[in-house]
């Protein structure tokens, strides 16, 4: 099947490797294209190489080999152009504790080569509910607010691409919802967003596409929907009228298991297969006189998929 033609990627990574001075190989040849305007979630366990990948794109870490182009420009040869297009929100809450919020935002804007623009700075601060705190020193703010200050810094220079490195790590549920809202609103304005996370639900909630990185290798890049459908196992749960002590011998060999002290019979099947086997199963159950009150089907979450991808490798 031919893929539909794609517009040129806004970010293109080819054969990127990074070996730290300690000898640790954090990236082992990563190839990745990011489409303009998408939300891309990079999933991976701790130490998988997520932050190193971002750092190499942004110029914080010098790549050992490979190339990165942003909107067609090389991130080493044309670093002024590529870096001006990128906003980075780091994982660590690294801030200048003694600085007032608004000065640090103005500083970031200047650093990225943009002339002062009080209106834009105000808009960013208001969007992130920081306007009332603009004159507070950063050390006086809560952790969640510091996180927002970092986002405001990254947005201060109107980037085309925004990197969010674990944006919701250690953030409470409410703020996490706000953050997701904000990311969606940003995408509406045309910003391409790349976020790393190890919260699967975050990727599931937000992303258009998902990449899974493990031990410095990108082991999968897929549309979220395709990924969920392709790898998604479905389960049929039958709530039995009478509990069973064991799966009847007549049904041995079928992907069946009992749960809830024998009250639930669970059948696992492949949602993509031609034959799910459900009608046959229900018929057999009727023949065996196993009656049920109710039934439901459920799809495995991205978390199950992720675990099934990463676990065999460790």
């Amino acid at each position: 099947m031919l893929a539909p033609p794609q517009p040129a990627p806004i970010l293109s990574i080819r054969g990127l490797t990074k070996t730290y001075a300690s000898g640790f190989q954090a990236l082992k040849g990563v190839d990745l294209d990011i489409r303009k305007g998408e939300i891309f979630a990079l999933l991976g366990p701790n130490g998988a190489g997520k932050t190193t990948l971002i750092s190499a794109v942004c110029g914080i870490v010098t790549a050992t080999s490979g190339t990165v182009t942003v909107a067609g420009y090389d991130n080493v040869a044309d670093y002024r152009r590529t870096r001006a297009m990128i906003g980075l929100v780091p994982q660590e809450l690294s801030t200048n504790a003694f600085e007032p919020v608004i000065s640090t935002i103005r500083f970031s804007r200047g650093l990225f080569g943009k002339p002062p623009n009080p209106a834009h700075v105000e808009k960013v601060l208001r969007t992130l509910s920081l306007w009332d705190k603009r004159n507070s020193r950063i050390m006086e703010l809560s952790g969640g607010m510091k996180r927002r200050v970092l986002i405001a810094k990254a947005l201060s220079h109107e980037p085309d691409i925004l990197f969010l490195d674990e944006p919701t790590a250690g953030v409470d549920v409410e703020l996490r919802r706000d953050m997701w809202e904000m990311v969606r609103a940003l995408r509406e304005t045309g910003v391409t967003i790349i976020l790393t996370t190890h919260y699967i639900e975050e990727a599931e909630e937000m992303a258009d596409r998902i990449g899974v990185i493990d031990k410095g290798e990108l082991i999968l890049v897929e549309e979220k929907k395709t990924l969920m459908a392709k790898l998604g196992r479905k389960q049929l749960v039958l709530h039995l009228r009478e509990p069973l002590a064991a799966v009847p011998d007549a049904l041995a060999g079928q992907p069946l298991e009992l749960a809830q002290d024998g009250h639930d019979l669970i059948y696992t099947f492949d949602a993509q297969a031609e034959e799910t086997g459900i009608p046959a199963l229900l018929k057999r159950l009727a023949d065996l006189g196993i009656d049920f009150k109710d039934l439901q089907t459920r799809q495995s979450s991205l978390e199950d998929i992720f675990v099934s991808l990463v676990r065999p490798r460790s």
Partner: peptide, 11 residues
Amino acid sequence: TGTVYEILSAP
């Protein structure tokens, strides 16, 4: 403090 990330990633 770690804020050097911004200097290094700036154009």
